[in-house]
């Protein structure tokens, strides 16, 4: 038996919106301590990893580990039934064939229920090692979104360079070339802060198209954390207050 109730259902709705363009069918792993999922995009260059702790739920019960195979596209359609102020409850029996999703609005007394059919997914589960990233950049999520969006209109690829003084996003395309450079900024206004933790400089190139997809999660968190390490995938991380973390991994582009 699994049951989890989230008071702020909007968070779950935002999570589904933030991953639905990247992954299609996903195994959701239920454990007594929380909910997690890991899935790659169809081209296997990006990976989504979500971890939600049971502590963030108003009510959480999972007697055993369970795997719920879900079509994210269909889950997104079901989530459209939820009002932004709804509480969301997820329920599944042992050996379940469907996931019951309940939306409740205590103010308007409206309740919506949907039984989403589960699917069997044969997916690879990768072991992601604990990595000491040599450059970690914490940046306002709205600002990072805007930088990626605007640079994408100029180039398909962005080069991210870090050093102890700044992080630089540079592009080179038919239009020309240029860069956005952000220095370490620990101003009193928290939302303006850019925090650089660089032990070793990194220079890597990435497909901006993916970064734009990841940035859909910027509504989940005020800050985006970029973790870089030469020869390793970039991690774009969004902390979800009191609930968990949504991480995206993206393979760097390398010269052929």
């Amino acid at each position: 038996m699994f049951e989890a109730k989230l008071t702020e259902g909007l968070i779950l709705k935002k999570i589904v919106e933030s991953i639905k363009d990247i992954v299609t069918d996903v195994n959701i792993d239920i454990s007594p301590s929380g909910i997690s999922l890991q899935a790659m995009d169809s081209s296997h260059v990006a990976l989504v990893s979500l971890n939600l702790s049971m502590d963030g739920f108003e009510h959480y019960r999972a007697d055993t580990n369970m795997v719920l195979g879900v079509s994210i596209a269909n889950l997104a359609k079901v989530m459209k039934l939820a009002d932004n102020n709804d509480q969301i409850t997820l329920q599944a029996d042992q050996e379940a064939t469907h996931l019951k999703i309940i939306f409740e609005n205590p103010k308007t007394e409206r309740t919506t229920e949907f039984n989403l059919n589960l699917i069997t997914i044969d997916s690879e589960h990768l072991a992601i090692p604990e990595t000491e990233y040599s450059s970690v950049v914490t940046i306002n999520s709205g600002e990072f979104s805007k930088i990626c969006k605007e640079l994408f209109s100029l180039s398909e690829t962005v080069q991210i360079t870090t050093n102890t003084d700044y992080v630089q996003f540079s592009v080179e395309g038919e239009v020309g070339s240029g860069q956005v450079r952000l220095g370490h900024n620990d101003s009193e206004k928290k939302e303006d802060q850019t925090i650089l933790e660089v032990s070793e400089s990194v220079q890597q190139q990435f497909a901006i198209r993916y970064l734009n997809m990841f940035n859909k999660a910027s509504t989940l968190s005020s800050f985006t954390r970029l973790c870089l390490h030469q020869e390793q995938p970039l991690v774009v991380e969004f902390k979800i207050d009191n609930l968990g973390v949504l991480k995206y991994f993206l393979a760097p582009k390398i010269s052929d």
Binding site: V45, H125, A127, A251
Partner: peptide
């Protein structure tokens, strides 16, 4: 030209 390596190149299968 650029290429991107598969995620399974970086992270091993469990």
């Amino acid at each position: 030209k650029f290429k991107q390596k598969d995620m399974t190149y970086f992270f091993k299968n469990k």
